[in-house]
Design a protein around this nucleic acid. Sequence first.
RNA 1: GCUGGUAUGGUGUAGUUCGGUCCAUCAUGGCGGGUUUUCAUUCCGUCGACCCGGGUUCAAAUCCCGGUACUAGCACCA
Length: 489
Amino acid sequence: MEKRVKERREGLRPLDGEPTGVVLRFAPNPNGPMSLGHSRGVVINSEFARMHEGEVILRFDDTDTKRKPPSIEAYDTIAKEFEWLTGRAPDRIVTASERMPLYLAHVIEDIEAERAYVCTCAAGDFKELRDAKKTCPCRSLATTEHVERWERMNDPKGGWQDGDAVVRIRTDLTLPNPALRDWPALRIQTAPHPKVGDAYRVWPLLDYQSAIEDHLQGVTHIVRGKDLMDSTRKQTLLYDMRGWKYPDTLYWGRVKVHEFGSFSTSAMRTDIEAGTYSGWDDPRLPTIAAFRSKGYAPEAIRSFWLEQGLTQKDIAVSMKTIESHNVKAIESTTPRYSFVQDPLSRRLGMHETWPSNCFNIPSHPENASMGNRQWPAPKDGDSILIQATDFSASLRLKEFANVTVSEDAAIVEDFDRSDRRQIIHWVLEHHSRDAVLLIVEENQIKRHPGRLENVDLELGKVVQLERVGFAIVTEIQEDGTLVFTYLHD
RNA sequence: GCUGGUAUGGUGUAGUUCGGUCCAUCAUGGCGGGUUUUCAUUCCGUCGACCCGGGUUCAAAUCCCGGUACUAGCACCA
């Protein structure tokens, strides 16, 4: 047996056996838009599909109408966010609530084949029995009785309410892992569903719905969080009884971003509704909507997740890491502009005129194809603006001249760089406009007013403000003032 | 308590399947420096790790045994 040459692998480790025609799925609960955490599932699953010439399904697991009620806008939002992230639409979109008849048909098969039964024990009682590896009284009832119970569960006039009965999958009760013993598969849920109303009374739980759907869709590989390991084990028990082959399964660990605390979709919804945050795209929130509106490139989010790979370690990463991916993605094509915060005005004194009637500054020093910013040539008597914190007697105005600065004037000494004095960014007062930079500091949004060199920028444009960092145009006010939101260094 | 999972520098990650090419990869970060453009970006240099203890072996990050730490499930959530 020859040993493979060790070399650094780029990207994800290929799936075992390097299969082609794989089918993967990303299965979010549509109870809100995508979070950064969700995007990992999107990126990893689509990347495997791409690597192995397969398909990726976007599946909405919307079978909880009570604790995690689906949000009707989220279906569309998530589909669009999926496309934004990967650059292409999912190969298939499946919505669990629209496929209920299929699941319910499988339940009756499972009950008749004695793979499942209807249990009316109180949850606490059942747990005690289960922990003692004892069967509950319902389990030994005749199959015909279970079929009747099943019909009664589904009958609004049957007298059973939420919590009164549950369908369980029959397993070996001596299984060492208590979590797997006679696991619950469906429950009564009378809260209406935003898509199908009260068309169904009994809804499958994730483990059952997902198990059946993965089989129906021909899913070959499941990539999910390791918190779902027991889900795999439960579902495998059902697959074995049905003679199905369970997909190959891979796991990732939990990811925490230092800068964001723990956010749940429902907690974010509460805060947005309370006005703590302006919306799902509030720059302080770890949602894809926020990353997108802050100016992150989808390829940055992709390369970030690909770099994390598929380890089962629970990790805590810094936003700096995500930011560095974004810098790589946008740096070479982002134009630079001069933005002077807290400006001081000085009269320009020039003994010698600028040798041209216009003043060109490259839009990007390393990318000449981006062209130049054209300013009018600075003239004797013009007012220039410099940042208050830069004020010093001897300065160099970037791209322009060495100056001696006093309380009211800036006198040009010479144009060529001739010494090591500090270089500062500046603007011509008559060739600049008001602008405000919004920066999130300590979870508060702070305003930094200043003057931006004259340039037309449309909403959503990402720029690099010299000596400040990257920012995106988030608002253009009536009076022409540009509002930027700070992105990162 | 029961059942799993994971452990490589400050943070991530490659290498662990098949022990040697690993005095351990790449990135991020920190530090220092360069750039006719400089608190941003960019470039260069540098710092820094195999959880612990035994064992097997000529040779262990990699195999075995025993610890420890962290983490997940045991929901009529996904």
